[in-house]
């Protein structure tokens, strides 16, 4: 599934005095990101480019982390409007949002996600 197209028109032409427009474009291009702080492969950064993404141990997962504590398909990220929600896919070890074990959660900027030994920070885009 493709990412909802709410970003800028690449063909748009800017005039030299279009400061506010440029500022607006910079805001529009701020991506949704997961920053992996702990666990195999950390530190690294994943830009959330799809409306539906899987995090898991499987190589087929959109965000694949080679940790024995992750299920092959551990959680699903689903975008709805300006928000991503994270939903457990029946994983063995579950996931935690800011330390609370959740079945699903609408994510907010700065939330800490923990899946097994993998710790990530969610950064909201615009």
């Amino acid at each position: 599934m493709s990412f909802p197209k709410d970003d800028v028109d690449p063909e748009a032409t800017l005039s030299l005095d279009s400061g506010p427009v440029i500022a607006s474009l910079e805001r529009a291009q701020k991506p949704y990101v997961l920053e992996q702080l702990q666990g195999p492969g950390a530190p690294r950064r994943f830009v959330l480019q799809l409306a539906e993404m899987i995090i898991g141990r499987s190589l087929q997962a959109h965000i694949s982390v080679d940790s024995a504590l992750l299920s092959r398909q551990h959680v699903q990220l689903v975008r709805s409007g300006p928000e991503y929600a994270c939903k457990d896919l029946g994983s063995k070890n579950g996931f935690y949002v800011n330390g609370v074990r959740a079945h699903s959660a609408v994510l907010r900027d700065g939330d800490t996600l923990q899946l097994g030994d993998v710790v990530m920070i969610y950064r909201e885009g615009e």
Binding site: E83, A85, D88, V97, G99, V100, A102, H103, S104, V106
Partner: peptide, 13 residues
């Protein structure tokens, strides 16, 4: 006891 703040959009099993 696990103490947390109830927040919108959080679902627990």
């Amino acid at each position: 006891i696990s103490v947390f703040g109830a927040r919108e959009g959080l679902e627990l099993r």
